Amino acid sequence: MEIARLLHTFGGPALALLGSLPVLLRPRGAAPPLLDGPLMGNHDFPAVQPREKSYLPLPSHIVSGNPRQTATTIFKSPDERYAAGIWTCGVGAFRIDFEHDEFIHLIEGAVTTTDAAGVSRSYRAGEAFVSPRGWSGTWTVTEPVKKHFTWYKAEPSEA
């Protein structure tokens, strides 16, 4: 019984120490090893967004104005569960239901989001926020918006 108690007490810290040995034994100031594989390499966001075909939300989702949009995907993972890109939208309001977790960084413009409970939040260029999967509500774009986005789907898409 004493051995079980000792393993329980000291096993976790000992395993953590063993796991950190490669970092501890690396010469001071040495860089960690580089990863190598098919996804390695940066995917730069262009200074000027490539021309994309614009589209509108479904007519049943448009609340007001002309929320004409474009989307440029800069990177998508092979399993299509993660993506990053640039999105634009004209002045107007539309309903949206987020099917994935999305990080949003506004580059230009202003938007007010209002959730299904009626809680509103306003964001301007330079600000960032996350819309979690399942968020449902209205986006009111008061100044034309351009955003960098990244999204993650909890489950792989079905082809």
Results as ranks from 00 to 15, higher is better:
T142Q: 05
R121G: 04
S60R: 13
L18I: 14
V141I: 14
W87I: 02
A47N: 13
A84I: 05
H43N: 14
H61D: 15
G41D: 02
L6H: 13
I96R: 07
L106C: 03
L39H: 13
A84P: 05
D44Y: 08
M1Q: 05
E127D: 07
G92K: 00
S64P: 06
G92E: 09
A117V: 12
Y55L: 08
T112L: 00
L24H: 07
W151I: 03
F75L: 15
A154M: 10
V145L: 12
A31S: 12
T150I: 08
A47L: 14
Y55V: 12
G85F: 00
P13F: 04
R26S: 09
A47M: 08
G11F: 03
M1W: 01
S131W: 11
P78E: 04
P38G: 08
K53E: 13
P78H: 05
S60G: 09
M1T: 10
P27L: 04
D44L: 14
F10E: 08
P13V: 04
P59H: 04
G118C: 04
P46N: 07
P59Y: 02
P59T: 02
E52R: 12
T70I: 02
V111D: 01
H100N: 11
I86F: 05
F10Q: 04
R26L: 10
A14K: 00
E2Q: 12
R5Q: 15
A4E: 12
S64T: 15
P32E: 08
L34R: 15
R95V: 06
G92R: 00
N42W: 09
G118P: 02
A93G: 10
I96P: 00
M1S: 10
G134D: 01
G65Q: 08
A31G: 07
G29C: 04
H61C: 09
E127H: 03
T73Y: 02
T73D: 08
P78G: 03
E143M: 09
A125Y: 04
L21E: 03
G11A: 06
F103T: 07
A93H: 01
L106I: 02
E127K: 06
S20N: 13
G134Y: 02
D79I: 07
S54D: 14
H105P: 00
P78A: 00
D101H: 11
T73W: 01
K76H: 07
T9F: 06
K153P: 01
K153S: 10
D97W: 09
W151D: 06
A128Y: 06
V91A: 06
A93R: 01
A71N: 15
D101Y: 02
L15P: 03
A30M: 08
P13L: 05
